[in-house]
């Protein structure tokens, strides 16, 4: 690992996050809907008066020019303050801290399920191409990609909760509560991973160094697991990084169906409610998580394939 790679990566991360915050702020500004009217309508039970709207705007700095509002937010951010939710007596940081564990557990569960399915299935399909297992895995993968998450979620609830009565329908608190959401999320991910691993492993198994290994008299199992698989994992790791990044941004449908409100639900509700500080806070955190996952993915490349050198240095 090249440690000099990290400072450059951190600098790039800071620029990326700054751009994310600017773009998010810009999108907020062009989206119709006034948070003052929305919040007050909810609180007062009917549309607010012009005076009430003006007072709300002044209280939350919404009467300032957009660039001043943004700079004010940035200044507070540098002091570690993400602001206050318009709808809660709570800071944005508190809301994020509340929701992050839910999102992390869903992401971990979904990824674990997907790997438990895709690794054995992908390897089997690649080792026995055009066999029954390969055709079956292709069909299941197609189904997994095509099936909408919400529909699969309801189907799993119907089978495991209502018919068999072995899993809870919704909620959190025990590992069992994580089972169906993880299956729902993991199925779609596994489908993509399986096809990718199959294709990558097939290519590798045809490579010259694998043929050379075979000619040295190594057993097929050793050839596949020790030589070919490691080389075939790089594309899978790339996709895993992207998938994990998206999962950490929140899986709204699964969060709603299984009543596990994480970052995704928080963001969607904040967008609908024009809760600007929360929108900014969640997108910033999502950006941080995404960059973090991609950095870890890059580091994993080097670990898996020693020929890879981060920072552009030759191997």
């Amino acid at each position: 690992m090249r440690w000099q790679y990290l400072p450059r990566r951190l600098a790039l991360t800071a620029v990326t996050l700054l751009l994310v915050s600017v773009v998010t702020y810009g999108l907020i500004l062009v989206t119709p809907g006034d948070p003052a009217k929305l919040v007050l309508q909810k609180q007062l039970g009917q549309p607010p008066t012009a005076d009430q709207v003006a007072a709300f705007r002044a209280q939350h700095g919404l009467d300032e020019p957009p660039h001043i509002q943004y700079l004010h937010w940035l200044g507070e951010l540098l002091r570690g303050d993400l602001g206050q939710s318009y709808y809660h007596e709570r800071s944005v940081s508190e809301l994020l801290v509340d929701r992050l564990p839910v999102t992390l557990s869903l992401a971990a569960g979904g990824l674990a399920v997907s790997l438990a399915v895709s690794l054995p299935t992908g390897i089997l399909s690649a080792c026995r191409p055009h066999g029954y297992a390969d055709h079956a895995s292709q069909a299941v993968a197609l189904l997994g990609v095509a099936m909408p998450n919400f529909w699969l979620g309801y189907l799993l609830v119907f089978v495991f909760s209502l018919t068999l009565g072995v899993t809870p329908v919704y909620g959190s608190g025990t590992p069992a509560h994580l089972l169906l959401p993880s299956l729902t999320l993991g199925t779609g991910l596994a489908a993509v991973q399986t096809r990718l691993l199959r294709a990558s492993l097939r290519d590798t198994l045809d490579a010259e160094f694998v043929t050379a290994a075979r000619t040295r008299g190594l057993g097929e199992r050793l050839v596949v697991y020790k030589h070919a698989l490691r080389n075939a994992l790089l594309p899978l790791v790339t996709v895993l990084g992207l998938q994990l990044g998206f999962l950490l941004n929140g899986a709204v449908i699964v969060e709603v169906v299984f009543q596990r409100p994480g970052l995704g639900t928080l963001l969607v509700n904040a967008v609908f409610d024009r809760n600007y500080p929360v929108v900014q806070g969640v997108t910033l955190l999502a950006g941080v998580l995404f960059v973090l996952v991609n950095t870890v993915t890059d580091l994993a490349y080097e670990r898996i394939d020693p020929r890879v050198r981060l920072g552009g240095e030759p191997a």
Binding site: Y154, V157, Y170, V257
Partner: peptide, 14 residues
């Protein structure tokens, strides 16, 4: 929040 989840939770006795 999800109406279908309310309905299924009721059927499941949760």
């Amino acid at each position: 929040t999800d109406p279908t989840t309310r309905s299924t939770s009721l059927q499941a006795g949760e």
